[in-house]
Design a binder for these strands. Sequence first.
DNA 1: AATGAATGAGGGTTCATTCAT
DNA 2: AATGAATGAACCCTCATTCAT
Lengths: 226, 226, 226, 226
Amino acid sequence: MSETAVPSRRRQKEARPQQLLDAALTLFVEKGFAATRAEEVAQRAGVSKGTLYLYYPSKEELLKAVIREHLGSRIAAGAAEADKHRGSAAELLREVFSRWWLEVFDSATSGVFKLIITEVRNFPDLAEFYAREVVVPGEQLIARIVQRGIDSGEFDAMDVSAVVHSLLLPMVMVCVHKHSLGACAVHHEDFDPRAFIRWHIDLVIRGLVSQRGGARQPERRAVRVR
Amino acid sequence: MSETAVPSRRRQKEARPQQLLDAALTLFVEKGFAATRAEEVAQRAGVSKGTLYLYYPSKEELLKAVIREHLGSRIAAGAAEADKHRGSAAELLREVFSRWWLEVFDSATSGVFKLIITEVRNFPDLAEFYAREVVVPGEQLIARIVQRGIDSGEFDAMDVSAVVHSLLLPMVMVCVHKHSLGACAVHHEDFDPRAFIRWHIDLVIRGLVSQRGGARQPERRAVRVR
Amino acid sequence: MSETAVPSRRRQKEARPQQLLDAALTLFVEKGFAATRAEEVAQRAGVSKGTLYLYYPSKEELLKAVIREHLGSRIAAGAAEADKHRGSAAELLREVFSRWWLEVFDSATSGVFKLIITEVRNFPDLAEFYAREVVVPGEQLIARIVQRGIDSGEFDAMDVSAVVHSLLLPMVMVCVHKHSLGACAVHHEDFDPRAFIRWHIDLVIRGLVSQRGGARQPERRAVRVR
Amino acid sequence: MSETAVPSRRRQKEARPQQLLDAALTLFVEKGFAATRAEEVAQRAGVSKGTLYLYYPSKEELLKAVIREHLGSRIAAGAAEADKHRGSAAELLREVFSRWWLEVFDSATSGVFKLIITEVRNFPDLAEFYAREVVVPGEQLIARIVQRGIDSGEFDAMDVSAVVHSLLLPMVMVCVHKHSLGACAVHHEDFDPRAFIRWHIDLVIRGLVSQRGGARQPERRAVRVR
DNA sequence: AATGAATGAGGGTTCATTCAT
DNA sequence: AATGAATGAACCCTCATTCAT
């Protein structure tokens, strides 16, 4: 595919699993797991039905491989970036957080969020995997950043977990949207997902930053402890 | 169910569509359309497989009926509430907008958002219906409120459409979450969706309100006690 | 249906079986027994599905009733006519035989031949009934007439059974045709079934009548005795 | 089937369509299209239910393939034979026409006539196909032969189309009979279909040949012009 | 390793028949 | 007697998976 017009047999063989995973992700995200035929996946990967089963023992295992592939390292990579970063909490969110989500949005990984949402109820393992590998570390990462901002006086004191969700849920939703309504030929108005990602982070930061300028706002609530 | 131990044939016939719609919604949302067997829906509704087809000509029509039922009037009802409301834009968001979403979240309608997301690619009519009946009017309703807040000086001038999405996407995501990861037996941390709905609205409003640090914003509320 | 706008309940009840038989014949002939739904028959007879089962215990019994009704007495009636007739064998064929088939062709009975052909293999009783009540007496009746013509010198001596089939098979085929290709909207050329019935009888008689009194026709074969 | 006890996969694949067509023809003719289960056809062809659908996309397409197979070339073959023939019109009918029908009668094609009759009302395409490919060219072929016999003085002048039907309808009927009553275990009397085919042609020729050479036969009617 | 023909369990849908009203 | 709601066996067709080549 890259330089050699005819990739060597060895090369092809090594590329198979990736081709199958890519094809599977695309189709599972588009149509859902149950509505995707194994043969379709094989065809899109350019192999025959039988070949798929040489690499994955069942459609379900293929699904799990797809999800493992995309969510395994993303979080760790984001965490590493965040640790390297020098700057305020707001800057960290604006730089690293937004870049991470923009990359995810632009990549095939964005679809995995839709896939998870669609399929967790049918495959309980997925829930466990996703919670452990993605949700918990991801939320903790953001929570730490926010907490740091509060501790430094950059942000007002507030419910850290709630802030985390205010930041994360729209990001996930934008990714999901890309593969559902956003992929349909309907009036999209003027919604620009990439611009929104940055915008939303800014808006949340506006809500976070200390709004003194004088006396502490009395009507501002104490940290809410749920 | 009420007084009569054995409801009359006539009564049962009248109740069937609703029973079937309820069963179908639950199962379609839980497992997805393709993975739900028609017979399961019938069973859950307490009838036999054949009976389902007396009321809906196909599984697909049942899906469409489910969606039509739940999204048909909700928007209009929300709009009517909003029109009745007297108060600032922020109050309107805090009162009407939050109540509307809390009700949706607590009702079966919340599942419809997951259903739409899951199935829209497989049933293009759905996209058209959802965009026309829900997305467009819903976004316009919120946009008008935000615009009014800007016009009155209550909010700073900003991209209205972006604000709308910052408000709406997390609401939708919370509903979707309820029926995906949220329904699985996994570590939920301390995420309280209902509290989040109100919290997020507050946070966005904090980001919206004019922050010139001069005149007190009159619309800024006293401590809210949930 | 006749004079009274609203037939009495009693009248309706008495007419039901006939209405059902008529509807059944029409539909069974048109679409075949297996492809006709019991409810269609009921609808066409103007009653509900349940009512059909008050009069006939099953679809199959309805089929048998339909056939019994139409073939029971026709043969006997034809035989009586033939017995009354005074005249030559050729005249008998031209008058009585042709009239009988023209009447059958114009009546709903014509469809029964198609029905028998279509369904005998699925309902062995039918074969027995049809052979006993229709085929055997019908062929014997014609055979006797032909034999009489031979005995009287009006016809040349020849295989009586073969003559009988030369006379009967086209008659049956015309009836069958009426309800198969003949009922379809396709190029019918100029085939006039009623004219053909009379024509064919004439042609066969031409072949039967003694052709002595001149040169022997060389292409005429000796009477073949099987 | 030939030498190899186990035919190769490739060989089997090539043989499948014919096996399926044969099985389908037999069963469709015997029981009718609607009353034949797809699985029965598969079983009779020695394959599983699913395999049938690898070769034909639906039961209906299988039906159409069956009919196309059997009626596609038969007429053309008959026409070619007729064109080659040297001899009188009567000889042509006795030789070529009778041989053609005897072959058809003895082959599986005979069943197709029953099938057409039975199914033509349910599948309008069939009517069009059958009229265009079989009825029209078949009748024209016979009509030309009869016309030639009249032109040469071999036959008396008469309605050519009527003669054609007098020749053809009984042939078709004999084929149909073979697969309906004729296939049932009932008193068949002494009806020999093959003998009848030849006999009937002779009888019609007797009716056609110029019967001058002596007194006008009084029972001969003037040519009827419809 | 790769193929694709074959399988057969499974699921959507129909429809003969029953039975409460 | 008449209705038509309900049932569930049966049938068409699909598709995950296997396995001979």
